[in-house]
Simulated scan of single mutants.
Amino acid sequence: MDIDSKETKSAQKKNFDFVDAIRCISMIGIVIEHCGIVPTNRYSTQLELTVETCIIQLFKFSTIAFFLIGGFLINHKFQEYTPLEYLKNRFKKTIKPWLFWIIVLMLLMTLDRYVAFMKGSDGGLMTSNFPLYLYTIAKQILLLSPYWFILNFLICITILLIFKKQLYNLWFGLILALLSLFYSVNLYNGWLETTHTTALFGFVFYLWLGVYFNRFYDQVMHIIKSTKWAILIILVLASFVFAVAESNHLNKIGISDAYNTLRFSNIIYSLVVFALLLKIGNLSWIRRNLHPRETTFGIYLIHVILIERFLPLIFQPLKLKVLEFNVWENTGILLFRFLVVYIISFYLTRLLSKTKAKWMVGN
């Protein structure tokens, strides 16, 4: 028992030299992706379309990297706790704050409708069938907003807990990998809708891969460290070009979800970038200044509220005709929106984490 405890502590110590950097960079990419304001594939020239695709693709590794690092972190907890104990801890740290911010967003959306009702421009939503309206916005938030990925993450964890005895079985991993690749093929065939909610089992593999990586940490890191920098950088650039080319092809053949995270090319790109981030390792300035261990989850929860309810207060009065702007102007707007959202989310999370309300951000 003492040996197991020492091994767990040793594994945890190893974790923190790179986890914080990957967690922080991935969250930056996720927030950038959600701050987009222009519908994709709307530019008239191939150059602008390609630039748009490159900008979108740059941080497209973030979601898969987040599942990988999530699996890496939960591996030792799977061994320490029973499934019931683990889920109980998850409720306190994850589900409780997640539900809180969903309710906050619902209340803000309802308040918006009430103000419209008082001004006579509600369209009857507040009076005709208010329970249906509440059900509609709850469904929209749960299934169509970024909050869906928290639920998806929890479902993925539950699946791994159910098959805990097969956790280190390569055949189990292969089955999960095939499930993920199914969604890559589905993009071209349209057997299922390509919204992220239909990809319910598409991300379990990356959580499992993170668990497997934790189990064989020393062996994996030996391979990563033995790989030359030039080779990894070339692989990143090649996979990036491949991913951009696939998105351009999907756009040309009329696929509406041309930037889907589970594209085959993006899976490769995400895994190669993850390997590069592992080789980079610890970025101490990120830990010192951005405190990803304490702020990452709070940023994710709060940034949704800011994008949905706060940014429109800034941009709607400006009446920007973004569809008439070029790709560079819209990229500038994207970066401005990101900076506003990320900075406010970061400082709100830091503020809440220093109070009794720290449970709201999972601390």
Rank of each mutant, 00 (worst) to 15 (best):
N186E: 08
L192A: 04
G190C: 08
I157Y: 03
T127G: 04
L142G: 12
L178N: 01
R113P: 03
I159D: 04
K88Y: 07
P97D: 03
F117G: 00
Y212I: 15
I175H: 00
Y168H: 13
I103L: 13
V115R: 12
R90P: 03
P97L: 01
K88T: 09
T198K: 09
L200N: 01
K77N: 10
S184I: 09
L207S: 02
K119G: 06
W148N: 10
D122H: 08
L151R: 03
S180K: 01
E80Q: 15
Y147W: 10
L167A: 09
K93G: 06
Y206R: 09
M118E: 14
K165G: 00
N129M: 10
G120F: 13
R113K: 14
Q140I: 00
E193M: 11
T197E: 12
S184A: 14
L209T: 07
L105K: 04
V104H: 04
M126R: 04
T158D: 01
K92N: 09
T136K: 14
I155L: 15
P146T: 04
V115D: 03
L179D: 06
I155Y: 13
W171H: 07
P131R: 11
Q79W: 04
M109H: 07
L200D: 01
T136P: 00
Y168R: 07
T110K: 00
A138I: 06
H76G: 01
C156F: 08
W101Y: 14
H196M: 07
L108V: 08
F78S: 06
L132W: 00
L179R: 01
T127L: 12
V211K: 10
S184F: 05
F149E: 02
L68Y: 02
I69L: 05
L178H: 01
L207A: 05
Y135L: 15
F117L: 14
W191C: 07
